[in-house]
Amino acid sequence: MDQSAATLPLKPKDYKSALKPVWCPGCGDFAVLNAITKALAFMELPREQVALITGIGCSSRIAAYTGVYGFHGVHGRALALASGLKAARPDMKVLVAGGDGDGLSIGGNHFIHACRRNMDLTYIIMDNEVYGMTKGQASPTTAPDWTASKLTPQGSGVRPFQPAGLALTAGASFIARGFTGDPNGLAKMLVAAMEHQGFSFVQVLSPCPTFRPEQMQWKHHVRALDAETTNNPIEAAQRIQADDGMSTGIIFQNRYPVFRPGTGVDAGMGSIESEFLI
């Protein structure tokens, strides 16, 4: 992008790169890109103070489509890479994004540990209940009786994760669910997530028209959560359990100690070398 043209306050488009997304027409991920850029513009964050870290998958391509710093890493490890960046550079605003396969299957361990570690990161899972990039296999959020994959023609036979519930039990301090059919609502939700002190998790229902065309009907099922955000994990757990996973809003938010390693104060080598002397 033409960097010089953009002076503060930046507009959402100033947070986009010149690259044209490789996504299929109608892919939900476009709306996530728009919501992120809107949120960044709303927060008036200088582009160079933001980093977007992703794994591998259609959704993970998003890093290259923004004009902030980015790292398109390996499959499933975006949260780890982002945690290292945040530990070393607490001054940066660090966003992490990827698919449900990336975050909950191959990266599942990093997900639960990122929740409990509670670093100041915002993590977006673009949940399309399928592996888009590898052409349509079941993911950890796919229904057990989904038979359209050649890999599991009888269906996976395995019950799906409930990402919000998983985050809650793993100790996340901010849990929200958004929908690409409501990009403005999603942008607002992302602002709240980024303003939250600690680990904020946003599951975005992001349809894959190519491998899950039936998800184009989601817009008829998605509805706003019928309750205020709670800071009570028991209440949150009940709501998540009682729900079909289609209500959107900030489900849970609480203040937990934020993990910030190191003091940042360099006291010099001091006695370190002389410890070796006898």
Binding site: R77, A80, A88, H110, G262, T263
Partner: peptide
């Protein structure tokens, strides 16, 4: 810590090496 840096105990080695890459990307 004394030198103004830090060591993070990661959840596994997949995480540790990726954290290292992230921190190094950060300069």
């Amino acid at each position: 810590e004394q030198l103004g840096g830090s060591l993070v105990q990661a959840e596994d080695e997949l995480a540790s090496i990726n954290m290292v890459i992230g921190a190094s990307f950060g300069g």
